[in-house]
Design a protein around this nucleic acid. Structure first.
Lengths: 116, 116
DNA sequence: CGTAAATAATACGCCTCCGAAACGATGAGG
DNA sequence: CCTCATCGTTTCGGAGGCGTATTATTTACG
């Protein structure tokens, strides 16, 4: 760990990433949506609405709406929990994995200072 | 330059930063707003509405509205250009500089893997 | 001058998001 | 059973963003 980064490098990195997100024409995910998506793809399952709300410190409707939006984009999927049918299990999708992968690639490329 | 970053490190960094932005309670800036703000603070002045719109590839009302919002937050300021009074010069503010500085600090800290 | 060009701002209709509250469905426990 | 708790969703009113089109102000120039 302990990747060293100077403040000027950090700002340049952040700026370039934001520019890439704005310029690429694809619909931007909000900070909340991104945090939810990455939590789903990085933390071990299972993920529930309540659990995600707790982790992010937001209300449940925020999670529900984010799942609606990202579900339409096919970045995540919902499934009822058979053990306790009150719960909803949030699942990963192929599109979501690709999205996260492309995000990681963008970050690595920008950090390396490569044009593309 | 050429800061090396592995994909897993990149995702962890991105996730933690998004979590920090969501958790801290302050109003989040959108990707567009952040791109505008950082452009103002990193690129050499002067900055005009049209110039920013060109750089980001967005329409001018997007810039005007972002300046309205960030102006209320006192992150940027507007001034009429005396040489050509059609132009608006976007200026930095103390609050804006502090905001950018804290953003850079957050990135550096997260990249270093320190808890706080 | 007087007309055209350029600039930023505004109006409009549409969409998404927010927090708080109310709601339906499901499970737990007496 | 029947009540109560839990979970996710939906509803409500409000706030803010978007793109397109229009406006007001200022400048350029014939």
């Amino acid at each position: 760990m302990a990747t060293h980064l100077r403040p000027s490098q950090a700002l340049r990195l952040w700026h370039d990433i934001m520019m890439a997100q704005v310029t690429d024409g694809e619909p931007d995910l909000s900070a909340r949506q991104t945090a939810i998506l990455l939590t789903i793809y990085m933390d071990p399952p299972p993920h529930t609405v309540r659990g995600l709300a707790r982790k992010l410190g937001v209300t449940k409707p925020v999670i529900t709406r984010a799942l609606d939006t990202m579900g339409k984009m096919e970045l995540v999927a919902r499934r009822r929990d058979d053990a306790d049918r009150r719960n909803v299990i949030v699942q990963r999708t192929v599109n979501g994995a690709l999205y996260v992968e492309r995000l990681a690639d963008l970050l690595v490329r920008e950090a390396a200072g490569l044009p593309a």
